[in-house]
Nucleic acid binder design. Structure first.
Lengths: 210, 210
DNA sequence: CCCATTTCTCGACACCGTGTTGACTATGTC
DNA sequence: GACATAGTCAACACGGTGTCGAGAAATGGG
């Protein structure tokens, strides 16, 4: 959990902190991070610009707090999933990927701002890569065990494959969220991504069920 | 070709324009776009800051010009490739992807700055997506004809697949360039990417040769 | 060769967003 | 009621962007 800015946590004024976060997420839903000034956030929260600095050290810290929430939500939801890769590989992968799609769609402003901010801000980069790392590690483990039990062929390092597929998901999802062109239809995203995962992990169109 | 800033193109002073571009590419190799000021570019080119504006309307225009060159280089080199997908699918795909890897590695500063600038700048976004579009269209065509001749299975729309794989390449290559974690080793990138392309296009580890 | 036109240059200025400082006001507490 | 601590903001300093207008330097026609 990221905790900064507030000197201590006592009574009210927490509402202010929260108002800033709420304002930020709302504004991020309608315009880019760079087009939102600290003045905007302060006004939205009903305070003056200098007062903003009482709660957050910078605009980036606000984004960091929002990103932290989103990542926590993904982790929580992925953690609650059954791990039935042996009995239903295609379904299991699809459900995991589906969580990412859903959560990022629900917080598209935060997701795209955070991904852009990575290039500029160390803390954002570290937080994001920590999560990517843990998702990639999880995928690596599963792929490795699928390879070990003979369900998936070797010929490619499990970690390289896991990292690449996770990066693909990140990029494809952001392309969808930003309605970039080229991108794919939001409604087909989950299906397309899982197909690519399954084909490249199992080396076949239809992985056998065990 | 992007042509802006200069009122006409006559004699010298072109060297100035070029000096700015050279300075920009050099500085981009050592620090991020945001950490380079117009003052820096002007000084590097031996002119004053206001004079910079005689040649370029903004820092972004400089980046746009650099990006234009890089894209042209990729197009030129990809265009010169043999299109032997029927006789050697794996090799043909690998050679195409290899061009991207090579060119982006050679211009890593420009590539990463441009990809980051997309979020902020319309012209950069349009230029980049035009290229992505054309690369995706090319891949789509090839996939479609591989599906038509029975070498690749259906079950996924050729365009969706092509777009996703191209986006994966973009993301994996930038992760490698920025030495992000997680990322994959630069030396294995080409191999990993082509393996994923081939497995997900052909639905098998080893596409038959025709 | 000289003058007019166009290219090129830059000092000085206006602007905007960030982050800081220091003084001020509430609020609860012994 | 005095005293800490949370909370607030006007005013300032700073740095980067972009503009303006006055000139210097090159170019070409007469």
């Amino acid at each position: 959990m990221v905790q900064r800015g507030r000197r201590t946590t006592r009574v009210s004024g927490d509402e202010r902190q929260d108002a800033i976060l709420v304002t930020a997420e709302a504004l991020l839903a309608e315009r880019g991070f760079d087009d939102i000034s600290i003045e905007d956030l302060a006004r939205g929260a009903g305070i003056s610009r200098p007062t903003f600095y009482f709660y957050f050290a910078s605009k980036d810290e606000v984004l960091l707090a929002l990103l932290d929430r989103v990542i926590t939500e993904v982790e929580h939801r992925v953690g609650g999933l059954p791990r039935d890769f042996e009995s239903d590989p295609a379904g299991a992968w699809t459900r995991s990927i589906g969580i990412f799609v859903e959560v990022f769609v629900a917080h598209r402003g935060v997701a795209t701002a955070a991904i852009a901010a990575r290039a500029r801000n160390d803390e954002v980069r570290v937080l994001w890569s920590k999560s990517m790392q843990s998702w990639a590690d999880f995928s690596t483990e599963v792929i490795r065990s699928e390879q070990a039990r003979g369900a998936a062929p070797g010929g490619i390092d499990a970690h390289d494959l896991a990292v690449s597929l996770n990066l693909m998901n990140e990029r494809v999802i952001t392309a969808v969220l930003n309605k970039e062109s080229p991108a794919i239809a939001e409604s087909r995203a989950l299906d397309v991504l899982s197909t690519i995962w399954i084909r490249s992990i199992y080396g076949s169109v239809n992985p056998g069920r065990a």
